[in-house]
Simulated assay, not measured.
Amino acid sequence: MASLNVGGLGEYLREQRRNAQLSLRQLADAAGVSNPYLSQIERGLRKPSAEVLQQVAKALRISAETLYVRAGILDAERDRDEVETRAVILADPTLTERQKQVLLQIYESFRKENGFGGTEDGEVDAAVPEPGAAASTSKGGRPAERPGREAGGDDSGPRRTAG
């Protein structure tokens, strides 16, 4: 059977699966696809739908957009730097999953601050703080007091009561 133009995708999926230390069967179960079908995708014999790619990406904890580009669903030139940056962060075996998500949140925050849009595939699920929302500090390096706490002003947050 002649190989479709998805060999690069299959090789990439196999590499990501091995990096995640998953067997073909484990990934197929996690993605909700059959073991033989996933095997054919990895060997470049089948071209998966965007939906299947999204399920596989979720199971591998990688960007679905990266898989879309590799499968030819998205234009490879579109946001190439963003896709590659995300892929490098997510593929780094020296980082924990939490560290990867924090880095992606920071990256997304900077992109938004510079006028670039957010992700379309929902890769970063946690709320990203708005630029400048980090806790401010006083001259001594201690956290600055929140306005309104001591002065009795309304900061619309929960209040502690004695007792």
Rank of each mutant, 00 (worst) to 15 (best):
M1R: 12
M1I: 08
A2N: 07
A2P: 08
L4V: 10
G7H: 00
G10H: 02
E11Y: 06
E11R: 14
E11S: 12
Y12C: 00
L13R: 04
E15V: 12
E15T: 13
E15N: 04
R17F: 06
N19A: 15
N19L: 15
Q21D: 05
L22M: 11
Q26F: 09
L27D: 02
D29M: 14
A31H: 09
A31S: 12
V33T: 09
L38N: 08
S39M: 03
I41T: 09
R43V: 06
G44A: 07
L45H: 14
L45S: 10
R46L: 10
K47C: 00
P48R: 10
S49Q: 01
A50C: 08
A50K: 15
A50G: 06
A50M: 11
E51T: 12
E51A: 14
V56M: 07
A57H: 03
A59S: 11
A59K: 06
I62R: 13
S63E: 01
A64H: 03
T66L: 13
L67W: 04
Y68L: 09
Y68V: 04
R70W: 01
R70S: 03
A71G: 00
G72D: 04
L74N: 10
D75M: 09
D75P: 05
A76P: 05
R78Y: 09
E82V: 14
V83H: 02
E84R: 08
E84P: 06
T85P: 02
L90F: 03
A91H: 00
P93S: 01
P93L: 08
T94Q: 02
E97K: 05
R98Y: 01
R98N: 02
Q99I: 08
Q101H: 03
Q101V: 05
Q101E: 01
V102H: 09
L103P: 06
L104C: 06
L104Q: 02
I106A: 07
I106F: 14
I106R: 04
Y107G: 00
Y107N: 03
Y107M: 11
E108G: 07
E108A: 11
F110H: 10
R111A: 01
K112S: 01
K112Q: 05
K112C: 03
N114V: 02
N114W: 13
N114L: 15
G117P: 12
G117K: 07
E120Q: 10
D121E: 02
D121T: 00
G122T: 01
E123Q: 11
D125N: 13
D125C: 10
V128T: 04
P129M: 08
G132M: 04
A133C: 02
A133S: 09
A134G: 04
T137M: 13
K139E: 06
G140K: 12
G140L: 09
G141D: 00
R142S: 13
P143L: 14
E145R: 14
E145K: 14
P147D: 10
P147L: 15
E150R: 15
E150A: 13
E150S: 13
G153I: 13
G153W: 05
G153T: 01
G153K: 07
S156H: 14
G157P: 01
R160H: 11
R160M: 13
T161M: 14
T161S: 13
A162D: 03
A162C: 05
G163A: 05
